[in-house]
Write a protein that binds this DNA or RNA. Structure first.
Lengths: 220, 220
DNA sequence: GCCTCGGTATGATGACCGGTCTAGAAGGCG
DNA sequence: CGCCTTCTAGACCGGTCATCATACCGAGGC
C-alpha cells in the first residue's frame, strides 16, 4: 500500500469512528483532520469532492466490513437465525462498550443526508442491499420462498438498524436484546404467505451492475 | 389560547415539519423563524434554553400526536396486528407523499443528539416508552405474557423506526411494506418462550412518574 | 540537475450557526 | 392615564463550518 493510500485509509477510519459515535453533521472536518493527524491539503487531494466523497468512502468501508462480519458469522453458525443472533450479540457488546453511542455509521450518514445528496443515498442503498442479500442467501438455503426471504431479510435489517437507534436513544442495549429474543418468530415460516396485496406499484430498487463488487446477485 | 401560545405552537409545528424532513442539525433557527414568520426575540422568549428547548418541545408534541394516532387506530381496529398494520399504512402513505423524506422527527433528533444532551435523550426515551406502552397494552389484552409483550412491543417499535430510516435511504417505501407483510409472524406467540438468558444485567430504564402524562403505567 | 507526480501544508474566505441584547408594542387592569 | 405583564422585533456578535488557492516537499526517472 502506498503512502497516500495509508493516509487516505487513516482518514476514512477516523471519520467512520467519529460518525459512528456522534453522527455526520456533528463530525466536522477539523476534528477528523486533527484526530487522524492529516493536513487539510491532503484531505482535498484524496477527496476532491469534499466531505461528501469522504462520506461515500466511509459508507463503502463500513459496508464491506459489516458484510464480511456477516459472512464470517454465517460460516461459523450456518443458520440464518443463529447468524443473526450472533450478529446482534456483536452489536450489543459494541453498544455497551461504547457507552451506548456506537450506532451504524452508514445509517447516521444516510439519515442526515437523505434528500440532500443522491450520491450518498445511492451508496447507502447499495450497502443495505449487499447486507440484505446475505440474509436472503441464508434464508433461501433454508427453504424460504424467494419473496418471503426477500421481505424477511429487509425487515430484519430494519429491525437491527432501528434497535441500534433506540439503544442509543435509551442509553441501554435493551432494544437489541429484545430483538435477539424475538428473532425466532420473526424468521419463522408463516402458515400462509403474507396476504397483503401490493397496493401500489413497488418501485423496487434494482441493484446496479456494480453490485457485483459485493457479490451475491440479488433477486428483488 | 393566548397569542403567545399560538406563536409558540407555530414555531413547534414548523420546526417539527422541517426536522421530520431534513433532520435536526440541518434545520437552522433562521429557517424555522423565516418559515413560521417569527422574530428571533420571540424565539428566545418562548424557548429560553434555546434550540434544545425547542427540540424537547418537538419531541413532546410529536410524541403526543403519534400516541393519539395509535390510540385512534387501536379503537378502530382492536387487535395489535391490525392496528400496527394500519399504523404502518399511514406511515407508508406519508413516506410516499413526501417523496421519501418524512421520517420520525423524534428519532431524527434523538439520533443526532445522542450523547450530547441528556435532556433531549430523556425526552425521546419517554416518548418511545409511551408508544411502546400502547403496543404492550394491546398484546396483553390478547393474552401475551407480560415479558413477551414487553419485548415484542419494543421490537415492533425498533422495526418501525428502522423501516422509516431505510425507506428514506432507499427512496422507496418498500422497507415499510416488507415490515407490514412480516408483522403476523413478528407478533405471533412462539411455541416456547424466548430461550435466551440474560447475559448481562439489564439496566432497564424505569419510567419516571411524569410518564403519567402519557397514561398507561408500564411494567418493564 | 531538472522535471514530474504524488502528496503535504497553511492561511484565507464567505456562509451559516445559535445566542445575546436592547427597544418597543400590545393588552389588561386599576 | 400609568403601570405591569406578555410578547414582538431586529440588529449584532463571535465562532464554526467546508472549501479553495497557493506554495512547498520528497522521491523517482531521465
Amino acid at each position: 500500500m502506498s503512502k497516500g493510500k495509508v493516509t487516505r485509509q487513516r482518514m476514512i477510519d477516523t471519520a467512520q469512528a467519529l460518525i459512528q459515535r456522534q453522527g455526520y453533521a456533528a463530525t466536522g472536518l477539523q476534528q477528523i483532520l486533527t484526530e487522524s493527524g492529516t493536513p487539510r491539503g491532503s484531505f482535498y487531494f484524496h477527496f476532491p469532492g469534499g466531505k461528501e466523497d469522504l462520506a461515500r468512502a466511509v459508507i463503502h468501508n463500513h459496508g464491506t466490513q459489516f458484510a464480511e462480519l456477516i459472512d464470517e458469522l454465517a460460516a461459523l453458525h450456518g443458520s440464518a437465525l443463529r447468524t443473526t443472533q450472533a450478529l446482534i450479540d456483536r452489536l450489543t457488546v459494541q453498544m455497551e462498550t461504547s457507552n451506548c453511542t456506537a450506532g451504524c455509521p452508514v445509517t447516521h450518514i444516510a439519515m442526515e443526508q437523505a434528500g440532500k445528496s443522491n450520491a450518498v443515498q445511492a451508496a447507502a442503498r447499495e450497502v443495505y442491499e449487499a447486507w440484505r442479500a446475505r440474509f436472503v442467501k441464508m434464508l433461501r438455503a433454508e427453504g424460504h420462498e424467494p419473496e418471503l426471504a426477500s421481505t424477511q431479510a429487509r425487515t430484519v435489517l430494519s429491525a437491527i438498524e432501528g434497535a441500534l437507534l433506540l439503544s442509543r436513544a435509551y442509553g441501554s442495549a435493551a432494544p437489541l436484546e429484545d430483538l435477539h429474543g424475538n428473532l425466532p418468530t420473526l424468521l419463522a415460516v408463516p402458515k400462509s404467505t403474507p396476504s397483503r396485496k401490493k397496493v401500489r406499484g413497488e418501485p423496487e430498487v434494482k441493484p446496479r451492475e456494480q453490485l457485483g463488487l459485493w457479490g451475491l446477485g440479488l433477486q428483488a
